Simulated assay, not measured.
Amino acid sequence: MLLAVGFLPVGANAAETVTVTDITGRNVEVQVPVEKVILGEGRQIYFTATLDSEDPFKRVVGWRDDFKKADNDGYHQYLESFPQMEELPTFGGMKDGTFDVEQAVALDPDVIILNLDAKAATEDSGYTEKLAKVGIPIVYVDFREKPMVNTEPSMRLIGKLFGKEEKAEEFIKFRADAIKAVTDKLAAQSDLKRPVVFIERAGGYSDDCCMSFGNENFGKMVEIAGGVNMASEIIPGTFGTVNPEQIIAANPDQIIVTGANWELYVPGGNWVGVGSGADPEVTGQKLAKLMERPGFTGVKAVADKNVHAIWHQFYNSPYQFIAVQQIAKWLHPDLFADLDPEASFQELHNRFLPVDYRPGYFVSLK
């Protein structure tokens, strides 16, 4: 026994098979800590970076090819520090039927981590059974459908898989404290006036108007931040659309547009490219241009210049608490005069992430 222990590498953890419960309630057997992971979405690197801060790619043997397209600025910032990420095998998506099962099996992962929204397509296509037959488990996490409910259990699940439970709990507390800095102050107000807010999802991504959020995701973030989400009575689920006439009729007090650098999706598009290191002069000009569309020119928010753009990827990452703080500051500037969302984002990077914070994630017309 002593000889066997002596040959273990310093700091090695003995692997054990455990049963974990994923975000859908499925019980899944996984050998932890996992050493080889396939990410069902490239943007899942946002959570691997939070837990594997020294090298967010050390467990990743394959990933979906969306990170560069959905967050081009963030992708290239990570590429500066981790050039090996360009060599990783890439996959198509479960929902569009382009996921390559044979390729996944050849990579011999310990687990495949998928987003909740891929579950129906994964099961309908038979991928779950095919992978189970070769001993590759699937677990589901969620930072998109109900992020304000599912972020904490998702991070705990990933912490268990990675053998980083303590780090996961540290992040969860940091996130909860940041949200509490908003909710406690709002709860103490006896006569809080909640402004009506229209959130436009991916404004300028297409010529259509307008994608938005119902009572979840950014819609829920608006409510937590002390506002009234205009589309909550129009859109029954998490995602949906409203038309220009509905915006005019609601006459919102504030407008928030989500955006990112989508040059690879919509080259030269009218989207607002907020994100890592974005130029606020450029993003501000593009935001102002969007407000010239029918449905926006006459509303109160535009007249008062209470119009803002925010990084779209807060909607699909563990970092939504930064968005809650920033929205609260926009909606109640006097009440949250001392709140500094940029400082919170900076601290997130300093404590958890392997890249430096580069401002550019928010812009306002005022």
Rank of each mutant, 00 (worst) to 15 (best):
Q246Y: 00
A260H: 01
T241I: 08
P341K: 05
N243G: 13
E292T: 15
P236Q: 12
K289N: 14
A303L: 12
Q320F: 15
G259V: 02
H312S: 01
A260R: 05
G240W: 02
S317A: 12
P318Y: 14
V266A: 10
G273M: 10
T258M: 05
E292N: 13
E292D: 15
I310D: 04
Q320T: 14
K289M: 15
D279I: 05
G269L: 10
K305M: 01
N261K: 11
L264M: 12
V307C: 04
D338R: 10
T258Q: 07
G240T: 10
P236Y: 08
N316Q: 14
T283R: 06
P294F: 01
F314Q: 06
A303S: 14
G295P: 07
T238C: 08
L331H: 06
Y265I: 15
A260M: 01
G277E: 07
W311H: 01
N243Y: 02
E263I: 14
P318A: 14
E245V: 08
V242E: 01
Q326E: 15
I234A: 07
G295R: 07
Q326T: 13
L287K: 01
S317E: 03
Q285N: 09
V266K: 11
T238F: 03
T283M: 05
A309N: 09
K289L: 10
V242A: 00
V324G: 05
A301Y: 01
V282E: 13
G277F: 03
A250V: 09
G277Q: 09
N306T: 13
V299R: 03
V266C: 00
G268Y: 04
G259A: 09
K289V: 11
G273H: 06
Y319Q: 11
I247Y: 00
I247Q: 00
F296K: 04
S276Y: 15
H308S: 09
P318E: 13
T238V: 13
K289H: 07
E263Q: 14
F336W: 14
K286E: 08
A328H: 10
A250S: 13
Q325E: 15
V299Q: 09
G298Q: 14
K286S: 01
V302N: 05
Q320N: 09
G275I: 12
S232M: 07
P280N: 12
F239M: 12
T241E: 05
S276G: 10
Y315A: 15
F239L: 13
K329L: 10
N270I: 03
D279E: 11
G295V: 04
W311Y: 15
L339D: 08
P236H: 10
I327N: 03
Q325P: 09
P333E: 13
H332C: 04
W311V: 11
I256M: 05
E292P: 00
V307R: 04
H312L: 05
G259C: 09
A328V: 10
A260I: 02
N316H: 12
Q320S: 15
T241R: 06
V302A: 05
F296D: 03
K286G: 02
T241Y: 04
P333T: 00
A309L: 02
V257N: 06
P294V: 02
T297S: 11
L264F: 13
Y315W: 12
Q313I: 01
A288P: 04
K286T: 03
G275Q: 09
K300H: 15
Q246I: 05
N243L: 09
I234N: 01
K305T: 00
